[in-house]
Computed example of a mutant assay.
Amino acid sequence: MRQAQAGWIAGTAAAALVAVGALTYAVAGDGGSSAKPSADSADAGFARDMAVHHQQAVEMSYIVRDRTDDVEVRRLAYDIAQTQANQRGMLLGWLDLWGLPKVSAEGPMSWMGMGDMPSEGEGSLMPGMATDAEMKKLESLSGRTAEVYYLRLMTDHHKGGIHMAGGCADKCTVGVEKQLAQGMVDAQQSEIDLMAGMLRERGARPEA
């Protein structure tokens, strides 16, 4: 049953990658429009911040793939890495199409009114992101311990991602970006549910 569910998510990820091309094409088709988002818009802010958020998910996923032989965890990690790497490329590509900077002078999360959110000082820049210390700990683990730690980190990471993507679904004005953001909410919630089951199978809970 678990393999079937994981296979469904893998298929969903593959479909999402096909959609990436269509979504990017749609934005490119509006390249000459005067309705491009501004640098301080939710559209630009989400694209910048989610690109950074996704990059860490990709890094975490490749770390755990090298630290476990478990087929289920390795498959999930690969699916997350591939999906989020492609989405990250699309978000950065939109910023290029819009002629907007990839770094905001106001700092991360300002588009959600969270520009002054306190940093933990260890690399946790946005909701759900792991700290530098947590990333180093993941690199030091192996086997079942690494699997559980990764699943917990990624669960928190997805919850933060859902918070951000939900903000774009509400605040963004570019139709295809809103569509992508809502797709992230739905897909990442499905993966959270899957990871909860994987943690139970390993005698663990989402929280440490």
Rank of each mutant, 00 (worst) to 15 (best):
A6C: 10
A10T: 10
G11Q: 12
T12E: 14
A13Q: 01
A14H: 14
V18N: 14
V18L: 15
A19K: 13
A19P: 01
G21A: 12
G21M: 08
L23A: 13
A26C: 10
D30P: 05
G31L: 12
S33E: 06
A35K: 12
A35G: 03
K36M: 11
P37A: 09
D40S: 14
S41P: 02
A42T: 10
A44M: 05
A44P: 03
A44T: 03
G45K: 02
G45H: 05
F46W: 10
F46A: 03
A47W: 04
R48K: 09
D49Y: 03
A51E: 02
H53T: 00
H53P: 14
Q56I: 00
V58P: 07
M60C: 00
S61G: 05
V64L: 10
T68D: 04
V73R: 00
L76Q: 02
L76F: 10
L76D: 06
A77C: 10
A77S: 09
I80W: 01
Q82K: 14
Q82L: 14
T83L: 15
N86G: 15
N86E: 13
R88Y: 07
L95N: 05
W98F: 11
P101M: 08
K102I: 03
V103Y: 07
A105W: 05
A105Y: 01
E106K: 14
E106A: 15
E106Y: 07
G107L: 06
P108D: 05
P108Y: 00
M112G: 09
G113A: 09
G113Y: 06
M114N: 08
G115I: 12
G115Q: 09
D116I: 01
D116R: 10
M117L: 12
E120S: 12
E122K: 02
G123N: 08
S124P: 05
L125D: 05
L125W: 05
L125C: 04
M129R: 00
T131K: 01
T131N: 06
E134G: 07
M135D: 01
K137W: 03
L138R: 03
L141P: 06
G143P: 04
T145S: 14
A146Y: 01
E147G: 03
Y149G: 01
L153A: 09
H158Y: 06
H158W: 09
K159M: 12
G161N: 01
G161M: 02
H163Y: 13
H163V: 13
A165D: 03
A165F: 00
G166T: 14
K171N: 11
C172G: 03
V174K: 02
G175K: 08
G175C: 02
V176M: 13
L180V: 13
A181M: 10
Q182H: 12
M184H: 01
A187E: 04
Q189W: 09
E191P: 06
I192R: 08
I192S: 06
D193M: 10
L194Y: 11
L194E: 09
A196F: 14
L199E: 11
L199S: 04
R200C: 06
E201K: 11
R202H: 02
G203T: 11
A204R: 02
A204F: 02
R205D: 15
R205Y: 11
R205T: 15
R205K: 15
